[in-house]
């Protein structure tokens, strides 16, 4: 975010300097370095995360085992008490105590791994968001620079080739005039075609009573008259 704001201050500042300094002025190289760093950080965080998640799974398994062992030992202790083997029951109780210490340690470790995993996941998410943001900044800035450079080339080209020394108004008038000329030529061609083309010749011939068309009307009339005079039965 905030890229348009930076572009705005550049546009408002000195338009002349834009072409040369836009990438530097927007710290594009810094952004690009940060993108690179963030990508490296993500790669490392993913490796770390894999390790932490593996340890988390391992501690979960050990917790499971410790609990099962404690349950088994408690069963044995009950049996020993039932058979009034108190000394044995005490020995088992000591074993249970050991197992409980182990269970507590594993439970604590497991919780720590979970916290670590979450922290790494958040770090990855934040880094990815940062990359997206920076990439947008870099893209916009690079695009802005490319546009300014293109305009510069065009301006230089217009300057040297002199292709646009006339004003916009003049350009418009020239285009319009050319368009009108073209229209005039089309109309003129049609007029000429009418005057000089076959069209006129045919009309003149017909007028002079020469050719097929000239007598057509008369022939038709004669045909109709003939039909009227001798209606078919």
């Amino acid at each position: 975010m905030g890229v348009i704001g930076k572009l705005l201050s550049l546009v408002r500042g000195s338009a002349r300097e834009l072409g040369e300094s836009i990438v530097d002025a927007n710290g594009v190289r810094i952004y690009e370095q940060e993108i690179h760093d963030a990508k490296t950080a993500i790669a490392q965080a993913k490796v770390d995360l894999t390790g932490v998640v593996a340890k988390e799974m391992q501690s979960a398994r050990e917790i499971e085992q410790a609990r099962a062992e404690i349950a088994r030992l408690e069963g044995l202790a009950v049996e020993a008490l039932e058979k009034e083997k108190n000394a044995l029951a005490e020995e088992v109780a000591a074993k249970i105590a050991e197992r409980e210490v182990e269970l507590e340690k594993q439970t604590q470790l497991h919780a720590e791994y979970a916290v670590q995993a979450n922290r790494l996941k958040e770090l990855i998410k934040a880094s990815e968001a940062k990359i997206r943001e920076h990439e947008r900044a870099v893209q916009m800035t690079r695009t802005a620079e490319s546009v300014y450079k293109a305009t510069q080339s065009i301006a230089d080209n217009i300057g040297t080739s002199g292709s646009r020394l006339v004003s916009a108004r003049e350009s418009l008038e020239r285009i319009k005039k050319r368009h009108e000329d073209l229209n005039d030529r089309i109309v003129a061609a049609e007029v000429l075609d009418r005057e000089l083309g076959d069209h006129t010749l045919e009309a003149k011939l017909a007028e002079a009573g020469i050719g097929e068309d000239s007598a057509r009307k008369e022939k038709i009339l004669a045909r109709i008259r003939a039909r009227r005079a001798a209606p078919t039965a």
């Binding site: 695009t143 490319s146 546009v147 080339s153 065009i154 080209n157 003049e170 350009s171 285009i175 368009h179």
Partner: peptide, 26 residues
Amino acid sequence: IPGEVPVIQVVIGGREELPIFVTASK
């Protein structure tokens, strides 16, 4: 059009005064 970035001038017959410039960035 010569320059640092690619620019191509498009000239349309009858509208030579209003060429179109095409340029590309990433």
